[in-house]
């Protein structure tokens, strides 16, 4: 029987945790023996999702971000959840160069980076309830 490995990380939405969060998921994924480029892809996608939660989910307060990941076969599944303001128009939020952050703190490319660097990106969100971003990546090459 295939053994599934899992991890969960709970963090306050402080920007100093961005580097920690992406490093943890990147390190967890190394169990799949990925290439350096695949690890970099995963870290970048996680960084985008966690940064979105910090900036957009909790614009006026510090809230909790839950990062959970699982490894099954050669596939990593990672989800980044918050209980923040939610996204009213997910399709619009996923458009390249769309950003509600007006102070050039983001380029509007967060979801585009996630979609490019991961195989599947699913966004579940409701205004006032929060957002979950689920990302899947299968490690193809044995690094």
């Amino acid at each position: 029987m295939e053994i599934k490995n899992t991890m969960e990380l709970r963090l306050p939405s402080l920007s100093i945790n961005e580097g920690f969060a992406r490093s943890v998921v990147g390190a967890f994924a190394t169990q799949l023996n990925p290439t350096l480029e695949e690890v970099a892809d995963i870290k970048t996608a996680v960084s985008e999702a966690v940064t979105n939660a910090i900036i957009h989910a909790y614009p006026d307060r510090i809230g909790e971000i839950v990062i959970s990941a699982s490894l099954s076969g050669q596939t990593l599944e990672v989800s980044i959840s918050d209980k923040g303001v939610g996204i009213s128009d997910i399709e619009q939020a996923r458009q390249p160069f769309f950003s509600t952050a007006g102070d050039e703190s983001r380029s509007g490319m967060g979801f585009t980076v996630m979609e490019t660097f991961m195989d599947v990106v699913t966004v579940i969100s409701a205004p006032g309830e929060g957002t979950t971003v689920k990302m899947v990546k299968t490690i193809k090459s044995q690094g």
Binding site: G19, R22, A40, K43, T44, S47, E48, T51, E104, S105, R106, S107, G108, M109, G110, T112, V113
Partner: peptide, 13 residues
């Protein structure tokens, strides 16, 4: 060693 899309905002600005 690392840059995400926040860096793109910095550079374009």
């Amino acid at each position: 060693s690392f840059m995400d899309s926040s860096g793109i905002g910095v550079i374009i600005g």
